[in-house]
Write a protein that binds this DNA or RNA. Structure first.
Lengths: 197, 197
DNA sequence: ATCTCTACCGAACGTTCGGTCGGTTATCAA
DNA sequence: TTGATAACCGACCGAACGTTCGGTAGAGAT
């Protein structure tokens, strides 16, 4: 039923994806800096030096993790852009899709949202993040112009608060079947209709 | 006009508060782990060993920063508890007050919101944070019972999303006169009345 | 049986880190 | 002038870190 495992040559063991998974899990549990290459190796049952057979260094693991997160988000933005819907509808769909991406690629997005721009790799990721923020801001602005969104809130502030809600999932979301859709409903409900009865 | 500087004895120089301020600024710029005691010393124009004259260790700086943040939040919770207002009003006031605390003690709260519980000190802070979350959750629950909040959202989820909005300020807020109140308005407006017109 | 491929290991490297120690310098009070 | 007080410094230590290197182990292919 599962995908047929393509017989691999050479000595059996871990591959790059296994190392990435283990690394990302530890990054989120302890933080990137607090996770040593020894920790990653130990969690796989191999030695430190063996890890370097699969990857070029610690930073590559960070890079790969952040790319998987950002690719998912921009894919969602691109998909929504294609629809000819009113801006408010596109905004709501993008927010919902963002929740789903965050749930699907949970650990990768969590890594992304914690980097502070200490290295060039991190700074590049922060730049892409800011680009995504801009997409949302423009959507709010356009929705205001079309009369779909209340005009008394600053678009940039609204975008940041919306994304703040969504991104907060990395702090408390526990994967569960159907859980992501329920949260997407809650986000959409609160953000667009409000909590008050 | 300013507070009269109480003549201090001994050689003039920095005090514990100056060290804490410098440390917290660097923690937020680079992250706690990525900030070395040398970095802190350098930013004050003194040597590493001189820093230890003011504090017992790196972790104490973290502890002090987190305590200042948590004390502010619980003070706000306590103040709101005293009013005999309906739960929905108490909830809204606590959310607004939280925005103001976050703005006032911006750098301390930012430190707090980034710890992952790697040490006992961090875990204790996380426990207090969770206690604050519970206060908000209970307020949502009570507001629902009183008919002030729509009954179709899970109280715990709503509380997390509300705090997610508020806490996201640490990612983008720039101190500005009157800026905090404007953001408190935006948060309150979006969260309670909704973005849609 | 041999070749090739992939995965793995032990030992060591240079560096950085948090922290310690004994001694020095500058100010105020008596 | 002397003593107390507070701030500071240079030199050092042990541990942990990311990374490198030369060599080994086990599997499929020829």
């Amino acid at each position: 039923m599962t995908a047929p495992t393509p017989r691999r040559r050479g000595r059996p063991g871990h591959d790059q994806d296994a190392v990435l998974s283990a690394a990302v899990r530890l990054f989120n549990e302890q933080g990137y800096d607090a996770t040593s290459m020894f920790d990653i190796a130990e969690s796989l049952g191999i030695t430190k030096s063996s890890v370097y057979h699969h990857i070029s260094g610690k930073e590559q693991l960070l890079q790969m993790a952040m790319d998987r997160a950002l690719d998912g988000l921009f894919e969602a933005a691109e998909d929504v852009r294609g629809t000819g819907l009113p801006a408010i509808e596109r905004l709501e769909r993008l927010i919902r899709r963002s929740v789903l991406v965050l749930a699907e690629r949970f650990e990768f997005v969590t890594v992304l949202l914690r980097v502070r721009g200490n290295t060039e790799v991190e700074q590049h990721a922060l730049t892409r993040r800011r680009e995504f923020d801009t997409v949302v801001t423009e959507l709010v602005k356009q929705a205001q112009a079309e009369g779909g969104v209340r005009p008394d809130v600053d678009p940039a502030t609204a975008a940041r608060l919306l994304l703040g809600m969504v991104n907060s999932l990395t702090e408390w979301y526990k994967p569960r079947p159907g859980g992501a859709e329920a949260i997407a409903d809650a986000v959409s409900s609160i953000a667009f209709e409000g909590l008050r009865m």
